[in-house]
Design a protein around this nucleic acid. Structure first.
Lengths: 217, 217
DNA sequence: GACAAACGCGAATAATTAGTCGCATTCTTT
DNA sequence: AAAGAATGCGACTAATTATTCGCGTTTGTC
């Protein structure tokens, strides 16, 4: 009844309680740190509750003081990453749309640099993102964020070219996201110089992907 | 001792025995069918031995007559896919290299069409491929195949441009593989028409990716 | 049709792991 | 410093699941 309950309840993933004493907020940090480190160490496998507790110098029981279940811990780690993406793309839609090929190229580059920064700033938690993708319980949650991101990429495309068909915009949005994601995961596993080279590669690919669909002079 | 043994033994993944009576080779098919169907039904989660047995109308014990462990079943399904990839790319290296931009474009297109066919022909087992990627035990095996494929893409690039630097070739190889894979997984989940549109998108991206590195007139 | 080998079975075993609960310890407040 | 709240503990429970093993049945062979 332990396992399936949490699955059936379809997860309260919110933190169980706010820490009220100073020591305990440190404990929360220790738990998150431990979970992050272990996930990184084990490639992309999600660590067990026992392992997290041990690494954090705690007992299993303490984990459940602050998190309703194991998934919530990983999700807490990923949350900043997951939510910063939509923010950043949305911000790129607020500017005035480009009018010629050169301005357009600039807009792509800006979106590109902004999204790249998110990857660079969150490089250490990429293993967590990969672990989440590979976890049957967490995957659906990431998918929700992904749908949001795709919609925003599509919105960006229609911002740049208002006559662009919805279907096409959404198809290109998916590809922008997936191509960017796949290549950047590769890049972050290499050295910084290679990462930058890959960034150039991706930018060319993005441009090749979207240019035919933006009626420019 | 059940679980960890198989992990420690680092897996004999070969079929445990060849079926010697006619009935049993049908059983092997039933097992593979059941595993495939269940993996497809459950998204990307690997089915349990019990579930596979039940679906195949067998008992768990019978599974182990022919497969040394659960992983071997999935791997057996994926094996044709995994091995046909290197074959196809290798075949594209045997032809005489292109000499001008147009011939080069043709070569990209041929490689492109050949790899695309592999995806189309194996569309039903994509969930298995995804499940394998998400499984900590199976992942390393897929990684070996991936390394092979990357090396072949790199070899293809150097076949097309013999002066191409090793490092660059291998970087582009990874990106060709990952971009192709990511986009085609998307495509196969859509209708055929969308798949074809995505193919065009990917072809543009591939061309944009590699063209700058091939000194053509 | 008799014999051995192959096959099929499924209850039992054992490993793993998520999550709980009552007791012990530490902190905060007055 | 005493009470009560918050925190920490870890043995225990319970669920899940891979794999085995001895026994009964079927099949191919002579």
């Amino acid at each position: 009844m332990k396992r399936s309950l949490s699955r059936e309840t379809r997860m309260a993933l919110e933190p169980r309680k706010q820490p009220r004493q100073e020591r305990s907020s440190k404990v929360v940090d220790r738990i998150l740190d431990a979970a992050l480190t272990l996930t990184r160490e084990q490639g992309t496998k999600t660590p067990t509750t026992l392992a997290i507790a041990r690494r954090a110098g705690l007992s299993v029981g303490s984990l459940y003081q602050y998190f309703p279940n194991k998934e919530a811990i990983l999700l807490d780690l990923a949350r900043r990453w997951l939510s910063s993406f939509p923010e950043v793309i949305a911000r790129r839609i607020e500017v005035t749309p480009p009018t010629n090929r050169d301005e357009f190229r600039q807009e792509v580059r800006k979106l590109f640099i902004d999204t790249s920064r998110i990857y660079l700033e969150n490089a250490t938690l990429m293993p967590v993102i990969e672990a989440i993708s590979g976890n049957a319980d967490l995957r659906p949650i990431q998918d929700e964020y992904d749908d949001q991101i795709i919609a925003l990429y599509a919105a960006w495309l229609q911002h740049v070219n208002p006559t662009l068909d919805d279907k096409i915009a959404s198809r290109l949005g998916v590809l922008m996201m997936d191509v960017g994601h796949a290549c950047r995961l590769v890049g972050l596993k290499r050295d910084r110089k290679t990462y930058d080279l890959i960034e150039d590669d991706v930018e060319r690919m993005w441009l090749a992907l979207v240019t035919p669909y933006l009626n420019l002079d």
